[in-house]
Design a protein around this nucleic acid. Structure first.
Lengths: 229, 229
DNA sequence: CGGAAGTTCATACGTTTGTTTCATGCACTC
DNA sequence: GAGTGCATGAAACAAACGTATGAACTTCCG
């Protein structure tokens, strides 16, 4: 093993064990965290052997990195692709705020390019990724996020010309918080004791959540400036 | 509060070791998570002995529970007290949305009833508490949260009479997400690579963050209904 | 057939984990 | 000043941890 190439050449057709390990690790990480999951838990859930982790990933940390990368990269690629398409389509006219936000929100909620079986697990993982204590994973997530954030910052600034960049930074921070926590709550709705005890609370379908997120975010971003004290 | 009494009678005057353990655990938990922190890390940081954990708390899980409880309970008590005072003050007139939100936000950002030394640590802890994998801690946090949430739901519903309760639930979910992620970003601003690379981003003082949070949340909560598709 | 590459297996190693034990230290009452 | 609780200390425990190793198995091409 010479360099830091994450995946083996991938020309092989036998991904059974490797994929099962990633799936199992994803589910367990999303439930118990990385440190709270042992490699023995993972291989048991995947029906594999202890040596398989060393063979396929080297170390547990590397496995964790791959678990996150496998899910986060496609989502962020889809976000940027949607934004590109949007900006290409309008030419020099201005984009609507809601369009930009949809490009940010929808990819995170849609399970593209994968069987929807454990789609929930990976979404939970994403919404937890920001709090991840694991240093390497955290660094990776932050790098991935930075590119997306810069692109969307610029787009939204064009859609809201009156907003000072200093304000935009914090409002976008609130936007990401709302997105991740909303996503998390939606996914675990049935297990949330507070949601179950609130008779008025019902779980909308995916599209309903997307629309609610977008309208909340758009209103928050368009808020009048906070009063100077 | 009728909850389970976590602490011993507390008639003793020698809190040195016990308090040092709680402080050290708080800091380490907020940095590395519960599972990522060993009891030996804690006693080393606290300058205590291994037996002290067993003597003062019994088990690591119970120590973790006390670490969270010590910080979350006062914040939630302050929130409810502020809301009580607000509602008592206005009689039958309506409260302004921003007033209610301030009662929700400000206690989380102010380090009441403690030396401000590791105030950051405990705020980090709070903003992470929702994602906590530890089952007991999670249950406790959710119970604590439920009471606050119900009270504030009712208050905000009175301030926004047009809003369907079903909508309120999700908008409040976004509000809490914005609060926790905003708080987290504010606390770790200097360590956030994205923030450091965004020249326009500056860290406001505590009051500035509170005002930005409130105006964002108020606008999001007051958003027009998401368009029926 | 036979050997070579790729993959899985059982097993073991050395640490680190949470917890326990019991002897020792301290402070204060009788 | 001996005795009595409370608190701390050093040491040890079994269990679980991540990782490493080498033999066995499968697959496939010459």
């Amino acid at each position: 093993m010479s360099t830091t190439q994450l995946s083996p050449p991938a020309r092989d057709s036998q991904f059974a064990t490797r994929g099962a390990l990633l799936d199992a690790a994803e589910r367990l990480f999303s439930q118990n965290g990385i440190e709270g999951t042992s490699v023995r838990d993972i291989i048991k859930a995947a029906g594999a052997n202890l040596g398989a982790i060393n063979y396929h990933f080297g170390t547990k940390d590397r496995l964790a990195l791959e678990v996150f990368a496998r899910r986060i990269e496609p989502v962020n690629r889809a976000r940027l692709a949607r934004l590109d398409a949007l900006e290409a389509g309008v030419g020099r006219r201005k984009l609507k705020l809601e369009q930009i936000l949809e490009a940010l929100v929808r990819p995170a909620l849609e399970s593209e390019g994968q069987g929807a079986k454990n789609c929930d697990d990976f979404m939970r993982l994403i919404s937890r990724s920001f709090q991840e204590p694991n240093a390497e994973v955290k660094k990776f997530v932050e790098q991935q996020f930075a590119e997306v954030a810069h692109r969307f910052d610029a787009a939204i600034l064009r859609a809201l010309p009156g907003l000072p960049p200093q304000e935009l930074f914090w409002r976008m921070c609130f936007v990401y918080g709302a997105l991740h926590h909303g996503l998390q709550t939606w996914l675990q709705f049935e297990q949330m004791p507070y949601a179950m005890l609130t008779p008025a609370a019902r779980k909308p379908d995916r599209e309903g959540l997307i629309q609610r997120l977008i309208s909340f975010m758009a209103a928050g971003l368009s808020a009048p400036g906070s009063k100077p004290r």
